[in-house]
């Protein structure tokens, strides 16, 4: 029983990271029908940036806020320079190549300047775990599901209750029609990528105290976050967070009861099977286009 509690706790924490990243993919996809494949690296900038700024003497909240703002700017730059020019046509895929290339550049340059080794991001919330019998979790890890759920509701509020959010939904629904009613679709898309950048960096900042801030910290989670978004049906905010958390828990159960070495092989196989059964994603809907 203790083991199952532990798998649920750590699965909840790991899954929330996947969920937050998947949420970023959802924001980008909603606005541009394209995503930023540097997203794992934007996530990394949240952790690494905070560490670097703290080493320069900034207090934790200021360092984190600056790193997240910086990552939001990076997200906007990626959209303007590496996505928009390559996403003009209906079926453009050039943005895939450019964003993957930029991701490699960001990671390499971070490795060269920050160094290849992980560094600690000290917070009081990783000093002592909360113990439940023979299981436990750091308070810092409990922030992750809270942040994922809060971000989901905040985004829903933003999309439904604010002018900007409604404009974003309009662009998502029909970019041309949105333009005809005076919405600057390009600016809205830029903003969506900036929001996603900030969200990814926020997740990186939250998890870095537990897993260390390193140049490669976003590589695997970025990939898994994208996979979670696809499996959930990328156009559903609640769906991507739920699937993210479920996938995190499933990983821990696989590690606990099947194999630690084959965790990813089993997990990815499971995802592929789900995609075969639900081509639109678990929470997705088939798009109907009138012709």
């Amino acid at each position: 029983m203790e083991a199952i509690v532990q798998y649920l706790l750590t699965g909840l924490s790991a899954g929330s990271v996947y969920g937050l990243i998947a949420l970023g993919f959802y924001v980008m996809w909603s606005a541009a029908k394209a995503v930023n494949f540097t997203y794992g690296d934007v996530f990394m900038l949240g952790g690494v940036g905070t560490v670097v700024l703290m080493e320069l003497g900034l207090p934790l909240p200021v360092a984190a806020a600056t790193a997240i703002a910086g990552a939001a700017v990076v997200g906007a730059i990626v959209e303007r320079v590496f996505v928009r020019p390559f996403n003009r046509e209906a079926n453009s895929i050039g943005w895939m190549l450019t964003t993957i290339a930029v991701g490699i550049m960001i990671e390499s340059s971070t490795t060269a300047t920050y160094g290849p080794l992980g560094r600690p991001l000290p917070t009081p919330l990783v000093e002592h775990p909360i113990r439940i019998g023979g299981s436990g979790i750091y308070p810092q890890e409990l922030l992750l599901p809270v942040a994922a759920i809060a971000a989901t509701f905040a985004l829903e509020f933003f999309y439904k209750r604010t002018v900007l959010g409604r404009a974003m939904r309009a662009v998502s629904f029909n970019r041309v029609a949105a333009g005809l009613v005076g919405i600057d679709a390009d600016r809205i898309t830029l903003l969506a990528f900036a929001i996603a950048g900030g969200l990814g960096a926020f997740a990186g900042f939250l998890v870095a105290p537990v897993v260390q801030a390193s140049a490669s910290m976003g590589v695997i989670v970025g990939l898994k976050g994208f996979m979670v978004a696809i499996i959930a049906g990328i156009a559903n905010a609640r769906g991507v967070v739920i699937v993210g958390i479920l996938y995190g828990v499933a990983e821990k159960l696989i590690e606990g009861f099947l194999s630690t070495a084959a965790r990813d092989a089993i997990g990815f196989t499971l995802m592929i099977l789900l995609l075969l059964l639900f081509p639109q994603g678990l929470f997705g809907r088939a798009e109907v286009r009138k012709v």
């Binding site: 203790e2 083991a3 532990q6 798998y7 750590t10 790991a14 537990v210 897993v211 490669s216 590589v219 695997i220 821990k252 590690e255 606990g256 630690t260 070495a261 965790r263 990813d264």
Partner: peptide, 14 residues
């Protein structure tokens, strides 16, 4: 055993 970049090894330690 564990994989490179694994962030949690609770299952092995349990």
């Amino acid at each position: 055993t564990f994989n490179i970049a694994d962030q949690d090894m609770s299952a092995q330690m349990i």
